[in-house]
């Protein structure tokens, strides 16, 4: 499955400055593994040492937080839209 992944500024030094990169995989976990192959070092920015998504990283699949789906096992289809976004604060 070929997807596009949007990458936030703090991770662009891994992607040669690109804000959007292609990747492949049939789950979020596989997409992250594929990103790691293409842009070495990016995985450990996204996942902690237990292999879980870091506390301050949000990953959205077609606009939905994957924590509401099946987290790293969420299924990915051709053409899906994936965004990596640092958690940010609002409200009080």
């Amino acid at each position: 499955m070929a997807v596009r992944v949007r990458v936030p500024t703090p991770l662009r030094r891994f992607t040669g400055g690109e804000g959007e990169v292609p990747a492949e995989g049939s789950s979020i976990r596989q997409v992250i593994e594929d990103l790691e192959k293409r842009h070495a070092g990016i995985r450990e920015r996204l996942l902690d040492d237990k292999g879980e998504i870091r506390r301050f990283v949000n990953i959205y699949l077609n606009g939905d937080d994957v924590r509401f789906l099946d987290s790293l096992n969420s299924k990915v289809k051709d053409g899906d839209d994936i965004s990596i976004v640092p958690a940010i604060a609002g409200g009080v």
Binding site: P8, P10, R13, R45, R54, R55, F56, V57, P86, A87, I88
Partner: peptide
């Protein structure tokens, strides 16, 4: 606003 290493 976020750490480049861990996104904290």
């Amino acid at each position: 606003h976020v750490c480049e290493t861990c996104f904290g």
